[in-house]
Design a protein around this nucleic acid. Structure first.
Length: 422
RNA sequence: GGAGAGGUGGCCGAGUGGUCGAAGGCACCCGCUUGCUAAGCGGUUUCUCGUCGAAAGACGGGACGGGAGUUCGAAUCUCCCCCUCUCCGCCA
């Protein structure tokens, strides 16, 4: 949630942000609602103040054994007025609350302004796609040939766009998850969490998936629970409604979870293979920091995510997303993309986003400053990494001319082998 | 799923209709004291919203798991929901 004080103090800042994001939201009517909301609050407060004074007087008189009928009558009529005004106020409140939930975060000043991926900015890494000296098979062909993915039978179990790993494929998937977790816990200073993946509505509002992405999530029929779309949701909600101590910060969490996405409306593109699926595995990083240290920690997180592709020796580049590609709740996002020479495409394997205080306001995550006072923390998260596309990148980049897949050095201890072959 | 007990401030914990925002303790911060560590003494410190203010702040509303209700007045009474603990049932 944005800071609603901005609505009164600096609405231009919000207008600019909305424009940068190419969004057409009627801000004036939200400001109008806020004005009405505050007027209603003031009115109710004055009535209550009067009633409280009367009640106190009544209490005093009663203790003296008197029965102040007239005062009680007055108080009763005040109470009735209050009830009416409160009902009115509640309606305004709900309308305002709903509207404000749809205001996205304000992009960081360094974020390039644009309408989509074409405006994303190259930060570092490879400027050109590497060209192998032989014809690399796309992952769906090589994996079928080596019998490590069963793309034909997966739909039988769950439907299209689900992955069935098999044999060395399943092992490779598990190896990736273990490698990422080990790297982040032993070298990068994250605490491992293994959270539940069914999350209630409040959690999804807290991190900002709701209300916007309602149709993109799987929901349980009989309970108000959603299958988590990313471990960001459980990890960021661990400290929902808490006041942390400054000395506890930064908090660094890493978790492996499966992630579930309906991907509604995304059909028609990228249909082959396993680049876009309904269930995938991901190791996710989440940090809570003070505002002061937020961006330093954010850069560290980017480096932590980048360390994975470096260790796997995959061709990659880091992109800074433009306002047209930036998600709703994020102030700034870097993507790490790896190149898949079989598909001849750059694939996003990690998204590293800083939310500043946006999620903390929604989820009410604060910390106590040693000098006194409380403030909202900064939250941020990044994939480290999502496996299916990393899997693709390995299978395609480590393919050999004779149709085997070599194993990246750092994964050999997990795979107990140097290559996957028939 | 059934029965019982309970959910109070950053934490622990008293409080069953009216000066209770809430005793006491811990923690924190400030000062003093004791030649270190530890401790002792005194004092301070809830959060949130609205109005006014450049600010410091002032005034007022609200908050005792969440929501609705009874009442002039609710931490305290009633109802619904959530969570925790104990017992029973079921079960990977």
């Amino acid at each position: 949630m944005i800071d609603i004080k901005l609505l009164r103090d600096d609405p231009q800042k919000i207008r600019t942000a909305l424009k940068k994001r190419n969004l057409d939201i009627d801000l004036e009517s939200i400001i109008e609602l806020d004005t009405r909301r505050r007027a209603s609050i003031t009115e109710i407060q004055e009535l209550k103040s009067k009633r409280n004074a009367l009640s106190e007087e009544i209490g005093r008189l009663k203790q003296q054994g008197k029965e102040p009928k007239k005062l009680m009558e007055q108080a009763r009529s005040l109470a009735e007025q209050i009830k009416l005004k409160e009902d009115e106020g509640r309606e305004i409140d709900v309308a305002f609350g709903d509207a404000v939930q749809w205001l996205p975060n304000i992009p960081h000043e360094s974020v390039p302004v644009g309408t989509g991926v074409e405006s994303n900015k190259f930060i570092r890494g490879l400027t050109h796609a590497p060209e192998p000296d032989f014809e690399v098979l796309p992952h769906w062909d090589i994996c079928e040939a080596l019998d490590i993915l069963d793309l034909k039978r997966a739909p039988k179990i769950s439907g299209s766009r689900f992955i069935l790993y098999k044999g060395k494929g399943a092992l490779l998937e598990r190896a990736l998850i273990n490698f990422f977790l080990d790297l982040h816990t032993t070298k990068n200073g994250y605490t491992e969490i293994f959270p539940p993946v069914l999350n209630p509505t409040e959690c999804l509002y807290g991190t900002g998936q709701l209300p916007k992405l309602e149709s993109d999530m799987y929901r349980c029929r009989d309970d108000a629970l959603y299958l988590t779309p990313t471990a960001e949701v459980p990890l960021t909600n661990i400290h929902r409604d808490e006041v942390l101590l400054e000395k506890q910060l930064p908090i660094n969490y890493v978790a492996y979870t499966p992630c579930f996405r309906r991907e509604a409306g995304s059909y028609g593109k990228e249909v082959r293979g396993i680049t876009r699926v309904h269930q995938f595995n991901k190791v996710e990083l989440v940090k809570y920091t003070t505002p002061e240290k937020g961006y330093a920690e954010f850069e560290k997180m980017l480096a932590d995510a980048e360390a994975t592709v470096k260790a796997l020796q995959l061709p990659y580049r880091v992109m800074l997303l433009s306002t047209g590609d930036l998600t709703f709740a994020s102030a700034i996002t870097y993507d790490i993309e790896v190149y898949a020479p079989g598909m001849k495409e750059w694939l996003e394997v990690s998204s590293i986003s800083c939310y500043e205080q946006y999620q903390a306001r929604r989820a009410n995550i604060r910390y106590r400053r040693p000098t006194g006072g409380v403030d909202f923390v900064y939250t941020m998260n990044g994939s480290g990494l999502a496996t299916p596309r990393t899997f693709i990148a390995i299978v395609e980049n480590y393919q050999t001319k004779d149709g085997r897949i070599a194993i990246p050095e750092v994964l050999r201890e997990y795979m107990h082998a140097d290559s996957i072959d028939k």
